[in-house]
Design a protein around this nucleic acid. Structure first.
Lengths: 271, 271
DNA sequence: GTCCCGCGTTCCACTCACCGGTACGCTGTT
DNA sequence: AACAGCGTACCGGTGAGTGGAACGCGGGAC
C-alpha cells in the first residue's frame, strides 16, 4: 500500500485509482478504491482539479489533458518514442499489421506505442497498458535479455495462465528464453490472447548488453504468419538501437530496484 | 504562479519545471525555477521519487515512466488517439509526410500525436508539445471552429511573430478564419517555422458543431505542395469524427450502472 | 405517497505533517 | 588556500490538512 498519511500519497492514490479502462469515476468509487474518508477525497480531488490533473464532469472525475501532457514530457519514453517512430512506421507499412513498442517495468511490459490500421487484430494491449512478461513476445524478449536474476524471479513466481497456450511450465519457458537469446527474436502463439500471433525483437544498447525496449508485429491466426516478418522486425529493432546510440542519448529504463545509476554522461549533451 | 503554499502545489511546480526540452534537471535548477527553498525542493522531490513520478539520476531528476504511464490513462486524449490512429496511419501512407493530431487547450494547440518517417521535415512540434493557435494550420482550424468569443480574444491579444510570414494583422487572420470555415481546411505557409507548409482539417462532433480536434499534414517547401492533400486530410478528419460519434452511441455499459460510458462522448465534446 | 439508501457537499476544531532556516561535506574553480 | 555552488541532513514551530459529523438531494422500493 502507498503512504496514505501524506497529501501526495493521497493524491496519487486517487490518480492511480483510474485503471486504463476507466474513463469517469464518481466520488464514491474513488472513496471505495482508495479507502480514504469521503471528506478527504472530496477535498483532495478538488485540489487536483484546480491543478489540472483531474477534470470534473457531471458524473464524476476523470484524468485530464494536463496529465496527458505532463506524462509525455517523461524523457526516457519520449526520446525512445521519437527515435523509434519512423522505424515503427516502416515496419507497419511493410506488414500492415499491428506494431508495438514496449519497455520493461518490473515484471511487466509497458507499451509505449501501438500503431495499426483499420484491419488490426483485436488485441488487449493499449498504449500505456501493461502485460505480463512470460506470455507475450515482447515480454519474452525483454525477459531473455534482462539477465538471470530477473529470469529466476519470474520463473519462480507463478506463471499466470491466460489462454490454453500460455506457457506455464518454468522449464519450457526457460528453454524458449535461451532460444530467444540465440536467435534474437521471440514468438508468441496465442499465449496471451486467443487468436493472436506475434514476433518480437530487442532494441539493444551498444555499449552494454542491456535491453532498452522491444518491437513486435502482431496479427490474427489465419492470415498472419510470424516467420516471414522476422527480418523486418529485427531490422527495425536494430535500427532504433543504433540510432539511439548514435544520438548519444543513453537511455536507461526505469527500474524500481536498480534505479538511478547509469545515466551519468548524458547530462551535458542536451544543453 | 501556482499556489506554492500547499504540498500539491509545490509538487506540481516541480513537475512542471520540466519543459519538453529538458531531460535531466539538477536540484539547484529546480530550486531556481520554482523559487522554493532548497530544503523544501529536496524533500518534495524525494517524495516524488518515492511515488514514482520522478527518477533520480546521477546528475539530477527526470520525469519517470510512471508519469508517462499515468498520463496515457487520460481518457479524452486516449480514446481520441486510439480512434484516430488508423486514420492517421492511412494519411501518412498516402502522403509520406509528417501527420499531426492536435487539440485545443486555452489559446494553444496541444499535439496529441505526431507520426512521420525518416524523411520527415524538421518541425518544432513534439507529441505533448504546444504551439500558438494563430500561426499553425491546426491552430487556425481549431480557432475558426471554436466560436467567436475565443476568436476575439485571440485577435485582440498580440499575435506573436514567429517568422517573416506569420500573420500578425488581426484583420487578415480573421479573413483567413472565415475562409477556413467556408472550405473546411486551413493552410499554413511558413508561418510558424521557416521552410514548412501545412494543411489541416477539423474533426467535428456530429451532434453539435464543436471541434474535437484537428488533423494536419506537414512538409518542407520544395517537394511538398499542400493543395493536393486537401481531400486526404479532410477524409481522415471526418473519418475520425464519425467513428467517434458512432462509438459513442454504440458502446454499451458492461456493468449495470455504468452511465459513465455515455458520458465519455459528452466529455469529448466538452473540450 | 413515504421511507430509505447512497451520493455529493459543507463545516470546523484538532493535530501532526510539513515547513524552511541553518549547518555540514563534497567537488571543482579562482 | 579560499571560495562558490552543489546536494544532503537536522529539527522545533505552526498552520495546512484532516476526517468525523451533519445536511440536502434524487431515485428506487414498497
Amino acid at each position: 500500500m502507498d503512504e496514505l498519511d501524506t497529501v501526495l500519497g493521497k493524491a496519487l492514490a486517487i490518480l492511480r485509482s483510474f485503471t486504463p479502462n476507466d474513463t469517469v469515476l464518481p466520488l464514491a468509487e474513488l472513496v471505495r478504491r482508495t479507502g480514504l474518508p469521503k471528506g478527504t477525497v472530496h477535498r483532495v480531488a478538488g485540489d487536483l482539479v484546480g491543478h489540472r490533473l483531474l477534470d470534473k464532469t457531471a458524473t464524476g472525475y476523470r484524468l485530464s489533458g494536463g496529465l496527458f501532457e505532463l506524462g509525455l514530457r517523461a524523457s526516457v519514453e519520449r526520446s525512445l518514442l521519437e527515435v523509434a517512430m519512423p522505424f515503427l512506421q516502416d515496419l507497419y507499412e511493410r506488414t500492415h499489421e499491428t506494431v508495438h513498442l514496449g519497455v520493461r517495468d518490473g515484471d511487466e511490459v509497458v507499451y509505449v506505442a501501438k500503431i495499426g490500421g483499420h484491419r488490426q487484430a483485436a488485441s488487449p494491449s493499449r498504449t500505456g497498458g501493461r502485460m505480463p512478461l512470460h506470455c507475450t513476445a515482447i515480454g519474452k524478449v525483454l525477459l531473455a535479455y534482462a539477465g538471470p536474476e530477473l529470469q529466476q524471479e519470474v520463473l519462480a513466481g507463478p506463471l499466470e495462465r491466460r489462454t490454453p497456450h500460455t506457457i506455464v511450465a518454468p522449464g519450457r519457458l526457460r528453454r524458449q528464453l535461451d532460444g530467444v537469446l540465440e536467435k534474437g527474436v521471440a514468438f508468441e502463439r496465442e499465449e496471451s490472447t486467443a487468436g493472436l500471433l506475434c514476433v518480437a525483437a530487442p532494441v539493444l544498447g551498444t555499449d552494454d548488453t542491456a535491453v532498452l525496449a522491444a518491437i513486435s508485429v502482431t496479427g490474427p491466426v489465419g492470415r498472419f504468419k510470424p516467420e516471414p516478418h522476422v527480418d523486418a522486425v529485427r531490422a527495425a529493432a536494430t535500427g532504433v538501437g543504433s540510432t539511439l546510440a548514435w544520438r548519444g542519448s543513453l537511455i536507461r529504463p526505469a527500474d524500481p530496484r536498480a534505479a538511478s545509476v547509469a545515466v551519468a554522461r548524458q547530462g551535458l549533451a542536451q544543453r
